[in-house]
């Protein structure tokens, strides 16, 4: 993890037009190399915070510095090149008549030359493993899993350093959820993107996230490596989040020698073997 954060949130306060205080004095640093999950109950401020990170919402007080730029004074186009945001429902962003033109929309907005647009679109569609037979299909008529991939590809084509993905596994079966998450991990490991996922799916968080930020009532309640945050049940209880069952089981069996920081079934099995062999 490098020293200088890529995104620095400083005393961020955000209030909606109806007066609701959504974020209250948030301080957060996001570094190059982070694969982070934002968790918390509904209304805890996760989505508001993430929309502030890429300048879609401007802070009421405080500031957010992204790659040295203050979101309050930076254009939407500049922010889109740095922090991508994949919305929960792909239907909110698909409007072009083909998958190809949908993915090309962002690069056209930032006025790239046609050759580079072509290169980026092809690269993004390859990364999301979109079969070429769909390139000329209307995105509206694709199944939801493919629409989600088009939405992610349309952000990837902008090559932002950080990508925020809002509830990527909602409404997906376990196979599709794992495919999406493994694909995001690939983006992180192979392409070097910072990945921020917003989710309620704790087993997914336990398996894939390296860092967890737990939010509740507009505050950050816990922030740290995944195992460390899941080992703080009191902090998580404040935002009605429970660690995965396997972690809870390990925590309750701590006196038998299990680590309360266990995150996956594989880790639990390994520890069981070791305990039985003693």
């Amino acid at each position: 993890m490098s020293e200088a954060p890529y995104i620095s949130v400083n005393d961020l306060v955000f209030r909606y037009p109806d007066g609701t205080l959504a974020l209250d004095k948030i301080n957060l640093k996001i570094y190059d190399g982070d694969l982070m999950a934002l968790i918390g109950q509904n209304g805890s401020g996760k989505t508001t915070l993430s929309k502030c990170l890429n300048g879609l919402l401007k802070p009421t007080e405080g500031s957010i510095i992204v790659d040295g730029l203050d979101t309050r004074h930076t254009s939407i186009t500049s922010m889109a090149k740095r922090v991508g945001y994949v919305f929960q429902n792909p239907d909110h962003q698909l409007f072009n008549s083909s998958v190809w033109s949908e993915v090309a929309y962002g690069p056209r907005n930032i006025q790239l030359p046609p050759e580079e647009i072509k290169e980026r679109v092809q690269e993004a569609l390859d990364v999301v493993r979109m079969p070429s037979r769909y390139y000329e299909e209307h995105p509206f008529f694709l199944p939801k899993g493919l629409r989600q991939r088009v939405a992610i590809a349309s952000i990837l084509a902008l090559r932002p350093k950080a990508i925020i993905v809002d509830e990527p596994t909602t409404g997906q079966d376990i196979k599709q959820s794992r495919e999406i998450m493994e694909f995001l991990v690939d983006l992180h490991e192979q392409q070097g993107h910072i990945i921020i996922i917003i989710t309620h799916d704790m087993p997914i968080v336990a398996r894939y996230a390296r860092r967890v930020v737990a939010m509740g009532q507009g505050h950050i309640l816990a922030d740290g490596p995944t195992a460390e945050v899941f080992a703080q049940p009191e902090a998580l209880a404040k935002t009605f989040v429970e660690p995965p069952q396997i972690t809870q089981l390990a925590q309750r069996c701590a006196d038998l020698g299990f680590s309360p920081r266990t995150l996956t079934v594989e880790e639990m099995m390994e520890q069981t073997r070791q305990i039985l062999n003693k």
Binding site: L56, T77, A80, F87, F95, Y105
Partner: peptide, 28 residues
């Protein structure tokens, strides 16, 4: 917001430009 997240910035553009681009809101 989804269009803005992909770099669409209507700030400072003419009213006719905005009207022309309105279709991308209408379709979704």
């Amino acid at each position: 917001q989804a269009e803005q997240a992909r770099g669409f910035d209507p700030v400072g553009k003419s009213i006719f430009y905005k009207m022309r681009k309105f279709v991308m809101y209408i379709i979704p």
